[in-house]
Amino acid sequence: MSTEPAPTPAIGSPSRSADGPLRAVVTGASSGIGAATVRALRAAGWDVTAAARRADRLEQLAAETGARAAVVDVTDQDSVDALVREVTAGGEVNAVINNAGGAFGMETVAEARTADWEHMYNVNVLGSMRITRGFLPAVRSSGHGSFVFLTSTAALAAYEGGAGYVAAKAAQQAVARTLRLEEAANNVRVIEVAPGMVHTEEFSLNRLGSSAAADKVYEGVANPLSAADVADAIVYALNAPLHVNVDTLVLRPLAQAANHKVIRAT
């Protein structure tokens, strides 16, 4: 665990309170958007706990950024409870980024694999619920807390072969929208960030099972989004004035006009 001091935030940044840097927890932080979000929040002056299953990757990220590393499996309630105890013992929590998730398989509904659907629901939906439920008292008590839900443009429009992931992300979106209604009176912001095509090292690989299949997803697309692009959007939403709630921020590369329309070089 690194004890490197937090970077000095930019003038006017709301990433500090009277008691020091604001504190955030990022799940799914061992790679991709989660790791990029840890880097971006640290650069913006936040005190960050990077949480994920892979301890080796977390330790590397902690050494790089000065974040705290915490191993968690969002599908396991005991693991989530331990994370909440560890983080809240260090003080108030100002932001929780529900990034842990993923897609598995591209089968049609007729060929759907039950285990894949159950895993997607458990990670994307129930995982977000467990993390949110666990940290909600601490976020409320901070007086200026935020939850971020990383959903997807899959939550906005269905596509063939995507039913399991579409359903999971639409459900996660519904959780975020309901939480916003329930917690606005408690001064808690609920922010949804819904990326389209993002080229990360693991998302399509985990979904499709091979590097060749994953590479075809981005084939001919000049500039898909990067994990850093999405992380910048998350930091923008969190560092907005505290009375501003970014309800839903949809991000796509210019080449992706819609889920079903992607401009590819021929």
Rank of each mutant, 00 (worst) to 15 (best):
P14W: 04
I131K: 09
E202F: 10
G91N: 13
R53A: 08
A214E: 08
G209D: 12
R130M: 04
T37M: 10
L208M: 15
H260R: 06
V221Y: 00
L251I: 14
E201T: 13
A257R: 14
A70D: 00
E192C: 05
A10M: 09
N187L: 07
V175S: 02
S17D: 14
G162N: 06
A227E: 03
N259L: 11
E107T: 11
E111S: 09
V84N: 03
D78P: 01
A103M: 14
D78K: 03
T88V: 14
L251D: 01
Q173R: 12
E182W: 13
V74Y: 10
A167R: 10
G145D: 04
A89C: 08
A255W: 12
E183H: 04
V38Q: 00
K261Y: 07
L179I: 04
L156Y: 12
E182A: 05
Y121H: 09
D76C: 12
G145E: 07
A228P: 11
L181S: 13
G90F: 15
S128A: 15
E192M: 11
E201A: 14
R23H: 09
A240Y: 01
S204G: 13
T178Q: 13
L208W: 14
T88D: 14
E201Q: 15
A213V: 02
F104Q: 06
L179S: 02
T248I: 10
V48C: 12
A214Q: 01
L136S: 10
Y121L: 11
V84Q: 02
L22W: 00
T248M: 14
A138I: 03
R252D: 04
E118P: 06
A157I: 09
V221I: 15
V139F: 04
G91Y: 10
I234P: 03
V230Y: 05
A240K: 03
A258S: 15
G220H: 00
A24C: 10
S128I: 05
D81N: 10
A154E: 06
G34T: 06
A194S: 05
F104Y: 07
A82N: 09
V87L: 02
A155E: 12
G105S: 03
A95Y: 03
D47T: 01
G45P: 10
S152K: 02
